[in-house]
């Protein structure tokens, strides 16, 4: 469990990225922080592994205040996946995946063997192990990034817009892969995105953020869809324009569901 307790972050230039932020992130679930740019979502994510330290307030992991932990050690037990993969270009794929275990003192040979298994886990062929990151496609690089994030078997996986730079088809694949991995491995995933559809797809808990890290609404996707907290949320999820509204049409005695454009999408079963 990760807890934010009245966390405020003001950067040296005076911008207040986050103000009085409170949130409980449940264990073994995916929590998505979603909002437009400048809402402080990445700042919040990076405060969890102390890439950024809060100006005031505290962040607790399983009840322990991270402010009292050594940042480098803390980061080695939290997985981190970023946009554009952030792979080390001078290291082969297998060594990139083995990065954190090697930093933790695991013998290189052992770490590499485990890295190969992780390539299987994220659906990559082992023949890619000896290639350098730039020889891989964007989607493959992102998978390597996920494998690297999982390598030290962390309880927590932070994902900072990991699929923002890949094409829609690959993104859809990677999203399904993320759901599968989270369910299979039971990690606590904190995912940052500006894409509300991605948030609803991946999140058990979705946190919609406004400027300055103010929470507009927290809930399951269903709860948010059922009852948007205010106009901001309604606009953000597209409910104000009739998006997200499905209607039922009776055709030949069966209930056909049509979307906001009147396009049939499926048949309702009772």
């Amino acid at each position: 469990m990760i807890e934010f307790r009245s966390v405020t972050k003001q950067f040296p230039d005076g911008t207040v990225a986050v103000e009085g932020f409170d949130l409980v992130i449940p264990p073994r679930k995916t929590t998505v922080l979603v909002g437009s740019s400048g809402c402080g979502k990445t700042t919040l994510l990076r405060m969890i592994n102390r890439m950024i330290d809060p100006t005031s307030g505290s962040i607790l992991i399983d009840g322990e205040d991270t402010g009292g932990l050594a940042p480098v050690k803390l980061r080695r037990r939290i997985g981190y996946v970023m946009q554009n993969s952030g792979l080390l270009p001078h290291r082969k794929v297998v060594d990139n995946v083995a990065t954190v275990p090697v930093l933790n003192g695991v013998p290189k040979k052992e770490a590499r063997a485990h890295a190969l298994e992780l390539l299987d886990t994220v659906g990559l062929d082992r023949s890619l192990a000896d290639k350098y990151p730039r020889q891989l496609s964007g989607g493959q690089q992102q998978r390597v990034g996920v494998a690297r994030g999982l390598a030290a078997d962390p309880n927590i996986l932070l994902m900072d817009e990991p699929f923002g730079a890949v094409d829609p088809i690959v993104r859809a694949e990677l999203q399904q892969e993320t759901i599968r991995l989270q369910e299979g491995l039971g990690k606590t995933v904190v995912f940052v995105t500006h894409d509300i559809d991605e948030a609803f797809l991946l999140g058990h808990q979705v946190v919609i953020l406004q400027k300055g890290g103010h929470i507009a609404q927290v809930g399951t996707p269903a709860e948010i869809l059922a009852r948007p907290a205010d106009d901001f949320v309604a606009t953000f999820i597209g409910a104000d324009k009739g998006k997200r509204v499905l209607r039922i049409q009776n055709v030949d005695g069966r209930d056909v569901v049509v979307d906001e454009n009147g396009t049939p999408t499926g048949v309702l079963q009772s």
Partner: peptide, 9 residues
Amino acid sequence: ILQAASAMG
């Protein structure tokens, strides 16, 4: 890449 390296620990 430097950020990523720091994030790795």
